[in-house]
C-alpha cells in the first residue's frame, strides 16, 4: 500500500480558512454531542410517556403505546430521517412545508428529533419491562394507601423501574450517540461528516477516521462512567441490584 502517513495533518490549516483540521473535527465533535444530548432528552421524555402507556391496564392506552413502539422501531433509522427531512415537508400543506424547509439548522433539528423518536421506542420497551418486573403488590400497596395512579407511578413504580433498567439504558444512551452519525446523510456535518470532509480535503483518510474513532470512544467512555456513577449513587442499601 502506497499511503503517505502524516499525523501532523491535524495541526495544519484546513481549507475553510478557519483554524486547523483538528478544529474542524472538534467542531464536529461538539455538534455530535449537542445532537446526541438533545436526542437523548427527547428519547427519555417520549420513552417514559409511552412506556407508562404500555404498562397501564387500559386497553386503549396500551394499544396506543404498542402502535407507537412498532412504528418507530420497525423502520430503519436512515429511512426515518429521510422521511422527516425529505418527505414530511412535501406531505404538509405548501406553506407549512416551505416554512419547514427554510428553517435554519434544519438538519440538526431533524437529526435530534429523528434519532430521539427512534430511540424513544427502545426506551419505552425497556421502561415497560422494568415496570412489569416489579412485584404486583407494589402497585396495590400504593393504591391501597390512597395514592392516585399518577402518584403511584411518580413516587413508587418509576423510581424503582428506572433503577432496574439503568444498565440497558446506558447502552441506549451509547446507541444514541453513535446513531447521530446517520445524520450525515441529511447534511449534518457532525463528527463523521467532518472526518469525511477532512478526508476529501487532505486525502489523509486513516488519520481522519482514527481521530473520529478516538473521539467517539472518548464520548462513550464519559457516558459509561457517568451512568455507572449515577447507578451507584442511586443504589439502594441491601437491595439485590444495589451494592
Amino acid at each position: 500500500m502506497n499511503y503517505n502517513w502524516n499525523w501532523h495533518i491535524f495541526f495544519e490549516p484546513n481549507p475553510t480558512g478557519a483554524g486547523t483540521y483538528l478544529d474542524l473535527l472538534v467542531s464536529g465533535l461538539w455538534l455530535t454531542i449537542k445532537t446526541a444530548l438533545l436526542a437523548w432528552v427527547i428519547a427519555l421524555i417520549f420513552g417514559t410517556i409511552v412506556g407508562i402507556l404500555r404498562s397501564l391496564p387500559s386497553k386503549a392506552a396500551s394499544w396506543v403505546g404498542f402502535c407507537y413502539v412498532e412504528f418507530f422501531r420497525n423502520m430503519p433509522l436512515l429511512v426515518q430521517l429521510f422521511l422527516w427531512f425529505f418527505v414530511l415537508p412535501e406531505l404538509l400543506p405548501r406553506a407549512a412545508g416551505l416554512w419547514l424547509k427554510q428553517l435554519p439548522n434544519a438538519p440538526f433539528w431533524t437529526a435530534a428529533i429523528g434519532v430521539g423518536l427512534f430511540m424513544s421506542a427502545r426506551v419505552a420497551v425497556q421502561l415497560a419491562a422494568g415496570i412489569a418486573s416489579l412485584p404486583r403488590g407494589q402497585k396495590q400497596a400504593a393504591t391501597a394507601l390512597g395514592l392516585t395512579t399518577a402518584q403511584g407511578y411518580r413516587y413508587v413504580l418509576l423510581p424503582m423501574a428506572f433503577r432496574i433498567i439503568m444498565p440497558p439504558l446506558t447502552s441506549e444512551f451509547l446507541n444514541t450517540v453513535k446513531n447521530t452519525s446517520v445524520a450525515i446523510t441529511i447534511g449534518l456535518i457532525e463528527l463523521t461528516g467532518q472526518a469525511r470532509a477532512m478526508q476529501e480535503f487532505s486525502f489523509q483518510v486513516f488519520e481522519a477516521f482514527t481521530a473520529a474513532t478516538v473521539m467517539y470512544l472518548a464520548i462513550n467512555i464519559i457516558v459509561v462512567t457517568g451512568m455507572r456513577f449515577l447507578e451507584r449513587s442511586l443504589a439502594i442499601p441491601g437491595y439485590i441490584t444495589g451494592k
Partner: peptide, 20 residues
C-alpha cells in the same frame, strides 16, 4: 376511590414496603 382507600389500612402478605 383514592380518598376512600386512604381511610382503610391494608397489610399484604409480602409487606410491599417501597424499597427505594
Amino acid at each position: 376511590l383514592p380518598k376512600l382507600r386512604a381511610r382503610v389500612g391494608m397489610v399484604f402478605q409480602h409487606f410491599e414496603l417501597f424499597p427505594h
